[in-house]
Amino acid sequence: MLQLTIQIAVNGLTFGLIYILMALGFTLIFGIMRVVNFAHGEFYMVGAIGILLLFGTLGFNYYLSIVFAVLCVGLLGVIVERVLLRGFVGRELNSMIMALAVAITLQALAAILFGPQEQSVARPVTGVLQVAGVFIPRDRIVVGVIALAVLIAFYLFLRYARYGLAMRAVAQDPAAAALQGIRPGFIYSLAFGVGSLLAGLAGALMAPVYTISPFMGDVPMMMAFIVVILGGLGSIPGAVVGGLLLGFVESLFSTFFGSTIATMIAFGMVVLILLFKPSGLMGRAQ
């Protein structure tokens, strides 16, 4: 029983961290630009395809491949923001449709370049770690440690760095931020770049765990959406709380009742939150 509990907790934590990576970027972009980024799942997909290319096909070191793939996804995010979304900042409906168009285009592009079929890469880390009678796959530990390290770095950046502070300022009051000398356009690019980078990292980390396809971003995008609704749209702590909550609920229910029930429970939570606390667990009431 204890072993099962620990197993569920480890799985919940791993999934939770990946969900947080996805949801943080999504909520950051919304908080700062008021853009509902429906292309977020595609940045996840591009991150995974980066691993397929660099690690799978070209045979680079896995960790170096992650760094390079993730930086490329961040750069792609900056370009998408600057060229396609900048004109729609603050206009939620228009920007949402533009983001949707970006998503479909990126999916189609990936399908043309890499084929629509599911592909996989070899697991870079294999074997299990046995601690107190509990078996933990080593690759889960790698995923967990990298995700956690990046999340802590992101937190420190937002909390203490000059640009992190500027991001929080723009999210709270763009006009007042401009009066401090902050260039809003630069912060939009930075936020979108960092958000995409986090999604790309989630994709790169999950590439060896799941299969890779142009449409693999749909599910994590949905999960990011659930997390953000649970935690409160635009709330950074909300994304963390929502991500962990979803991770543990999924892990718990899929262990006992299967993944269909787990997904149903996840959406059930969204329905309850929307009914009784529409601003989310940590969100500010509008």
């Binding site: 000059r162 500027a166 929080r168 709270q172 000398g181 902050i182």
Partner: peptide
């Protein structure tokens, strides 16, 4: 910026 501390507000004032 209501959600930032007094110090953070002042730090933003010296952004340039």
């Amino acid at each position: 910026f209501p959600g930032l501390t007094v110090y953070e507000n002042l730090r933003l004032g010296a952004y340039t």
